[in-house]
Structure formats: structure tokens, C-alpha cells
Design a protein around this nucleic acid. Structure first.
Lengths: 253, 253
DNA sequence: TTGCCCTGTCCATAATATGGACAAGAACGC
DNA sequence: GCGTTCTTGTCCATATTATGGACAGGGCAA
């Protein structure tokens, strides 16, 4: 069903945009976009510069990096309403945040990426704040990504992981490691990372499925590792699993 | 400087997106996109359907209309910070809103469109609320658009108006009318519409220029016509002009 | 100096996107 | 009922468009 043709250039431009989005405000060097997309440099160069002329991409004077331009939020204003998921998850995030006390994240799947769409800071004095709303990463490099991959049919997960292969290098991981983590998450019932992307942190993620059974999001707790021993890991996982089921019900409504 | 080639399809896709953005949540029928962009129907059809596959565009089941998809806000999250203008204009909008009591709009120029980026509701019991944040229209059909056009070199304005010609029909106006309104705004020092887009309303807009002298935005008051007689029009215009200059200073800082 | 990695540009070529023509469904008038 | 006019969707030969190999310049480290 997917392969409608006659628009290669448009698909490529979007692939470039998604990589640039992962670079947030700082942007991404051209060479990195080339690596991540697998396109040739002249092609990426041409696409990026046309997008600059169109106002969709900006280039930082100092660094030469390319970033999402301000015409993208302008287009996004056409869709002012917050998403169904965000509304449905709100009470659960508040409840779980109060109960757990560590930083909570809501992360959605978008294409081959995870995208952080909400964050709640807890009451405990040490909070992991490195991931911000808007943070975007290849599925598989964060515990949320692993959880989402674990919740989908093995074949689909494998396809996504393979598609992200070129991007894993930048996050110091690889296909084999990710596949192992997915298998572990399936056994456990939730995603987990002893070594978070930030040194000394640990994360636990549960998946949230849409009514049709496909994972759409993950709810994550991140904390300094010492605060998430085996006993507390169990406790936190239970809260997350409980709230994930509640959110799934709320989406249905 | 502009004409970099080798990406016709990408430019066309963006032109389509900008038209779809004008349709907000409801979207736009294919035929309307064809008219507004001047592209052929097969081309628009192909572009729109590729964008649907990519998640950038959505199609409403009931109406068959095409609208901006939720992947656009997702990309926009990469740029979380509010724009410089929005921050700079905030105090002026609050002050002017309190002073005037009618609905205030802040509208930016984006390409050949105006885009409403902020709205303040006043204290007077009858408020013009038809224009919402995110509303997008061809430059020239609203008083804000006329104000922005009036503030740029005549030749540039003429070019934009000509480019929007095909879209004016849908708003029951035409190139000659718009050019006349621009000339009137230049004489007055601000944009004005006796007959607003909504029946029985009247609008007054002042332009806001960036440090390099190009108009970037407009500040607008809309009210029921009876509330904006010649005397009050003068008063309101003076407040708007004063605040516009203050915003221009604030952007500079 | 050399080597390496970055960005930018050219242009012959192949592949891509194009749009005329055709089709079919929906809404309206009579 | 039937024609008219609106809409959206699809096909495919064609030529226009996008492609990427090859080349070049700049910055930095050894």
C-alpha cells in the first residue's frame, strides 16, 4: 500500500527534516545529515538549501549547522489543538509523578523516532532533566524507544532497527545491542536501561498501545541509578504499568 | 539570489502545505489547492497523497478535505522557544488591550500570507473572536495584510499581490481593490477595513518593522463597526501606532 | 608540508515528476 | 428519469527534473 511513486524528492526532503529535528535548536552539520539519511552529499546540500530559501530550514551563522526553521512552527499553528494522547495522559502523569517523585516523560513514536512530548518534574531533589520536550531520537537508543519496539510485532521492530542502523553509531550503540534490549524488555514487561544516555542515570519505560494494539507511546521514569535499586524498580514499574493501562482506556473513550 | 534549482517538487510540496495550513483543522478540498497553487490536479493529487503517507498531511474521512497532519507539530517541537517578536510584543499587547477594550491581534507575515500569532480579548462585552491564533490568509485580504503590504516598497507589494491573485477570489476581493486599500493605508499611516471579513466589523492595523526596515508584523484591533466611529478610530490608531513603535524598539534590544 | 574532514559546485546523464486524457462518483436542476 | 457540472482519482508516454560522480576550496591537526 505504501509505495506511491513520483515524489522521491519530497520524501527525501522530509527525511532530511526529521534528522534536522533531532538536532533541536543547535541543528546538525551537513555531514551528519548525509550519514543519517544515506543520501549523497550533493543531494542533501541541494535539498537543505532549497529548504532554507523556503524558510523551512535555518542555518546558524557561527556553527554552519542546519536546523528546523521558524516556518515549521508557523505551519504547525494550523493544528492548534493538543493531541488526544496528551489530554488522555495528563491525569496519569500527574498521579504517577506525585507517587514516584522522579522525572516522568511521555514519549511518542513518530516514524522511526521517539519524540518526547511531555515531562513532569518530581519532588525528589535530584532530577534527571537532560531530556526535554521536543527531544527526538532513533527508536532503540532510549528505554522509551526500546519499550515501544518491544511492544510491536518482532518483524516490524527488526525493520525499524535496521532502518536506524546508520544513526546508532552517533549514540554509541548498534543493532545487536538494541535487539538484545528489546528481547529483555519483552521478558520483563517493560523497557529498562541500566546505563542511561546520561552518565549515572537509569530509566524504566512502559509502553502504551492504541486501541488497535499498536504501541503509540511510552511512559518513562528517569532517576540517578542509586535511587532505582531492584526493589524500587519493581515498585516504579508497577505504577507505570498501572497508569499505562489507564491511559489506554482513556484514549479509547 | 533566490533561484536555486533542482528541487521543483519540494517547492511545490511546500506551496501545497501552506495552502493546507490556511484551512486549519477543517482542511481544504483538493480543487481549492489546485486553484490556489496554480498546479495541475494530478500533480497536487500526487503530492498530497505522498504527504499523507509520510504523515505530514491528513485527510478527513467525512469531508475528504486535506489538512496539516500531526507530524508537523511534531517537527515544530524541535524549536520550542517562543519567537523574539512574541516576547517583545507581549507587554504592548497587554497594555493596548487594557486601554482599548476590543480584541487585539498580532499578525506576522510569512511568505505571501498573514498568520495570526497572538490574540488578546478585551473587556468590552462584544468581542470579535472570528480570527484565531493560527489563522492564515493571503496578504491583502485583511487589514493586517494591507498594513504589512503598505509598509513595504511598492514594487514588492505589487509582486505579492500579483502572486496571490488566484487566491483572492475565495475572499471576494481582487488585485485592484487590494492595491487601492494599500494606497489608502499609506496615506492614513495605518491599515483599515470598513467591512471586515466578518459582517458588521471594522478593523484597524498598524505595521511593525524589523530593524532593517521591512515590515514583519501588524497589530490589529477588530470591533463591531458601530464602536469604531471616526473619533474613536483616531484614538485607537494613535494607541496602536505608539505601541508599534515600542515593539520595534524592543525587537532591536 | 601532508592528511583528513568539512562544505560547496558543476554538469552529463538517468531517473524522476509531469500533466493531458480518461474515468467515475456526487450533487444539482429540470 | 437524464443531462450538466462539480468533484476526486488514475494511467503512462514524455521531457523536464533531480541525481551523484568528480572536482575544488577551506580549516585544522600532526
Amino acid at each position: 500500500m505504501e509505495p506511491r511513486q513520483g515524489a522521491q524528492a519530497i520524501r527525501r526532503a522530509l527525511a532530511v527534516l526529521r534528522i534536522l529535528a533531532a538536532g533541536r535548536e543547535d541543528g546538525v552539520p551537513l555531514a551528519e545529515v548525509v550519514r543519517a539519511t544515506g543520501l549523497t552529499r550533493p543531494t542533501v546540500h541541494r535539498i537543505v538549501h532549497v529548504l532554507i530559501e523556503e524558510g523551512i530550514v535555518e542555518r546558524h551563522e557561527r556553527t554552519g549547522r542546519y536546523a528546523i526553521g521558524n516556518q515549521v512552527p508557523e505551519l504547525a499553528l494550523a493544528r492548534a489543538r493538543p493531541s488526544r494522547l496528551l489530554v488522555a495522559a495528563n491525569p496519569s502523569l500527574r498521579r504517577a509523578s506525585a507517587e514516584i517523585g522522579d522525572t516522568l516523560f511521555l514519549t511518542v513514536r513518530t516514524g522511526n523516532d521517539t519524540l518526547c512530548v511531555d515531562r513532569r518534574i518530581g519532588v525528589y531533589p535530584i532530577q534527571v532533566l537532560s531530556i526535554e520536550v521536543g527531544a527526538r531520537r532513533p527508536l532503540g537508543v532510549s528505554s522509551a524507544g526500546v519499550a515501544i519496539l518491544a511492544a510491536m510485532p518482532a518483524q516490524d521492530a527488526r525493520k525499524i532497527v535496521a532502518a536506524n542502523e546508520k544513526r546508532y553509531e552517533a549514540y554509541r550503540t548498534d543493532v545487536a545491542t538494541v535487539m538484545g534490549e528489546i528481547a529483555a524488555a519483552r521478558r520483563l514487561g517493560y523497557g529498562m536501561r541500566e546505563i542511561g544516555l546520561v552518565q549515572g542515570t537509569k530509566s524504566i519505560s512502559t509502553w502504551i498501545k492504541t486501541p488497535d494494539g499498536r504501541p503509540a507511546a511510552a511512559m518513562t521514569v528517569s532517576a540517578v541509578r542509586t535511587r532505582l535499586g531492584p526493589r524500587r524498580e519493581q515498585e516504579v514499574a508497577e505504577i507505570l504499568l498501572r497508569e499505562a493501562r489507564i491511559i489506554e482506556q482513556a484514549i479509547r473513550g
